[in-house]
Design a protein around this nucleic acid. Sequence first.
DNA 1: CTATGGCACGGATT
DNA 2: AATCCGTGCCATAG
Length: 470
Amino acid sequence: MLQTHYQQPLTAPSAHLAQTMTLLSLNSGELLQKVESELSTNPALELVEERRCPMCKRLLPATGTCPICSQPSTQDSDEPIVFVSAPEDFYSSRVLSAEETPEEPFASEMVSLPEYVLRQVAAELKVDDRALAAYLLSHLDEDGFLTATILDVARYHHRLPDDIKELIERLKRCDPIGVCSANPKEALLVQLEVLSESVEIPPFTREIVTEYLPKLSQHHYAEIARALGTTIIKVQNAATFISENLNPFPARAHWGDLRSPAAPAVNVYHRPDILIYHLNDNPNNPLVVEIIHPIRGTLRVNPLFKSSIKEVEGKKVEEWKEDIEKASLLVKCIQQRSNALRLLLEKLVVMQKDYVLSGEKEMQPLTRAEIAAALDVHESTISRAVSGKSVQLPNKRIVPLSIFFDRSLSQRTIIKEMIASEKRPLSDSEIQENLKAYGVNIARRTVAKYRSMEGILPAHLRHNHPVVAG
DNA sequence: CTATGGCACGGATT
DNA sequence: AATCCGTGCCATAG
């Protein structure tokens, strides 16, 4: 069984509802921004100094003790899962900070993609270039592509398009190589260029990327070979090289399980919103689930502000009251957000425990609606809570929270394994047959879909064992 | 003829 | 109401 410290209803009084909804759909980074902007505009809101647990150096609530160190920990084997979250009286809902906690090795490396890239170049840029770089990097989509056009940026910053192009070229060479490109083709070309300094690149690779990318993705190798006046083998070599060493979506490799080839720079680009891990990283210890609260210190309504309202002139009283009202609403809503997330995670981790502990094969089919029913909240609440959030699992992978609702993940994993250990290339129908032994009954067509989702080539293009990278 | 991808339909999910 | 997902049918490549 699990330990629920504080039971609270998920639903809020009507005034809170709208804001709770909004906050719920924010991930920790977005919430941080929101809070910062509130702090700078609302004088009634106050951020008090952080308290740290003397034992484990974790950030603590305004009152109370460290939820982890005060756990009975090791002896308590009856409680396989421990949930850590905000105490009830804890207005500011400070949970635990993964961010800005240098004592935790993995946490200190958590940096957003724009920040990560900016750090690499900032030192060698002039001040106004730095601002420009920051602007560019803040306009990346989730794949790491630049979403703004050069002309717009130029107009907005009153800079020459050529300057901007030059800067972009530099950014492209930063660690997720190809980041800030306009499209996959550009990204691939940059990666090729950088790679060519240290690795031998198969002939025709560059030409294929430049001219025949669409054909390549359709695996029309023969056609490409004809157009280039070379052999299919050479084209296939180049194709293998591309798929093994290059990544058309610079930011993606660091999300899921698509391993990044050259520089396995761990998953550091997104901060998780939730951490799941074994206490002290010892697999025998209970699981700890932390909901990250991105605010350093404790957020609350400034008591001084509140008490001095009596001494204020008539006209301003209204303003002040309004500020206090807004501040306390925000604080309450943030607390409610944590609470909702915690309740959600409790259910989620219990239901998908096998997945959390042993991997993707164990993922159970689960819908948001089921969870909503179990928690007695509206489905849209779950949707909001899930969207845009990410979780760090005990194996240190960072995955989107929505992965807990991926109905086909376990099937896809089985297929992946099956193909990885196949003696001879299995056709989709054969895979379909084999899958029945696992109790999986899906159509042949669906096998094909899953296979391509995993980026696995069809049987006739998959000779023997793929080349191992590096 | 077999294997696979494209399109689109219907039902479930959000 | 909009979107996603599994699947059947059909065209195409080998």
